[in-house]
Design a binder for these strands. Structure first.
Lengths: 329, 329
DNA sequence: TTGAAAGCGGTACCAG
DNA sequence: CTGGTACCGCTTTCAA
């Protein structure tokens, strides 16, 4: 900028005015400056600018794994909201490690990002002190965190599972098993608890048959086989997420068990499997959008108390929830 | 930092030394400084630091759509390489628009990112001037660009298609159709050309039956039905990408056509469809990793001529490539 | 309408 | 081992 100023025989301040389209520059002066800018290929150094202004026009997203379709859809939505507002997005993976997450967040705070959206690795709020001291706004997604109340965007796990159970019951199922993921995950526990509660609420027979992961096709079969034989054999299965749905589908195929199924999380090509898989759909794009919007509201000065938003799920009925007898007719 | 210096009765330079673990500070002085840092909750402002140092320790990834599984896997790989090297990653979507891509790249250059990986929207190299003037290293991915030679990471489209044709021929197919995506895409044209070349190279009968998109299940059926009836009916189909594979699968199901299939791009649950889908797998994670590695090599001063790397594809044989007669036995 | 000087928060360089 | 000072590239403030 100094170069441009010298070349155009004006002060840096005038160049600055031209670059930022500030008023109060004579048109011919402005034109002369622009010509020099063009000739020298000058580009404003946004780092310096933003440092002076105290904001970075950057937000960050911290997730477990960017390659996971759930997170990548969240990422796309957050990036879109950021772009609309002239902000840039830094994305970082914590790989499910709380310590790495903490390190990542500290690095982001050191960079003075304006705000952070994070899918927390655990509930420990290990970055609370840093965030508090730096006044960096944060929005948690998908899972809540202990400690200081913060804006949090969750999925309606309970409602989703309930709709799955009710759907199966409406189609005549009474004996339904639930396969969930590792109970270390908050969402896995939520969905399990929702299943048990709904099971009892509807007065289904016996005690709820629940198997928590981590699961593979093999580990699923260990309970799937006895449960579908013995007395009161199960006729349907509900799964706690994408990964478990896959394991159960493989297990059903391997054992040639004609059980009905409702999965949590929609997945690509669920409609092409035979029979097409009925799922509880959560909307990662909507969640990401909501999280980003909430973050920007804070950046714009919203000082209202932290709020938790529960995003609705939607049952996508295909065919796997019907009774197999009905399907074959 | 000035506050810390004042409080600890040392100069800012000494604080700087402590913060950066530079040698030449007496242990007790360092300890005193650290105590003040802790008490005041001081955190180094990386923006200021990086501005002085002239590097930002930031690289960027520009793609069409972060939610697309191909790009999100690339993104995860690039982020990982960046993180290993203490860099952060800015991700941006250009939504397939060359003008938006140009704007995004200019913004990134203004931020002085150290380098950029981009999946270009078209071949026009519209950002060439900016990149040239700013000396920002760039690596192109998946598609080449005209103009100044640049580092480029491509997938072996030709080899992939050839392996698909050869696989089908080995299983007795002679009449094979190709469904590709919109020929506006460089990769779509590459794969089409590879099909035609292989078709001729192997001396398959008649002229190659090719239908380019954009395709839906409906548009596929328009040619699929006549081609599988008339004289020399096709017995197999090759698809040019993920999206087309889906359209063809739906079309085959709708028309109850028992054709064999090899798809380009692997996809989630391809193994669970009946019959399991044989695919040409390209490795987005490996491509992203390679691109990032190439970029960092440039950042470390590699001045060798720009190179184009073609990453191998791999045929994942499941069952859909067999003749249906064989399958039913 | 224009410019000089201070300062954002650090680091580089050199002196003590 | 420690400190002073210039300076990175821009914006802010105030004066001309």
């Amino acid at each position: 900028m100094a170069d441009v100023a010298a070349e155009a025989h004006v002060s840096v301040k005038t160049v600055s005015r031209v670059v930022n389209h500030e008023p109060g520059v004579r048109p011919d002066t402005a034109e002369r400056v622009r010509a020099v800018i063009e000739r020298l290929g000058f580009r404003r150094h946004d780092g310096a600018r933003l440092m002076r202004q105290g904001r970075t026009f950057t937000i960050a997203l911290v997730v477990e794994d960017l390659a996971n379709p759930f997170y990548s859809q969240v990422g796309a939505a957050v990036e879109r909201e950021a772009r609309i507002r002239q902000h840039q997005l830094i994305t970082a993976s914590a790989e499910g490690s709380p310590s790495r997450e903490r390190a990542v967040i500290e690095a982001l705070v050191n960079r003075r990002v304006d705000g952070i959206v994070v899918v927390p690795a655990d509930e420990s709020a290990s970055s609370d002190a840093v965030l508090e001291a730096s006044h960096t706004p944060i929005v948690y997604m998908d899972r809540p965190v202990r400690g200081t109340p913060r804006d949090t965007i969750l999925s309606d796990n309970h409602g989703g599972i309930r709709s799955a159970v009710e759907h199966l019951v409406a189609h005549g199922h009474r004996n339904i098993a639930f396969y969930g993921d590792d109970p270390a995950f908050w969402t896995a526990r939520q969905r399990r608890d929702a299943f048990v509660a709904t099971h009892e609420g509807l007065g289904l027979p016996g005690s709820p048959r629940v198997s928590m992961g981590p699961h593979s096709s093999g580990s699923v079969q260990e309970t799937l086989v006895p449960w579908s034989r013995g007395p009161e054999p199960i006729t349907a299965v509900i799964t706690g997420n994408n990964r478990i749905t896959l394991a159960v589908l493989l297990a059903l195929r391997e054992q040639r068990l004609p059980l009905s199924l409702v999965g949590f999380d929609d997945f690509e090509l669920a409609a092409l499997i035979d029979p097409p898989v009925t799922v509880v759909h959560q909307d990662p794009a909507a969640m990401g959008q909501k999280a980003a919007q909430q973050l920007f509201a804070r950046l714009l000065g919203d000082e209202s108390p932290a709020q938790t938003v529960v995003m609705p799920t939607r049952l996508i009925v295909r065919a796997s929830g019907l009774r197999r007898a009905a399907l074959n007719r």
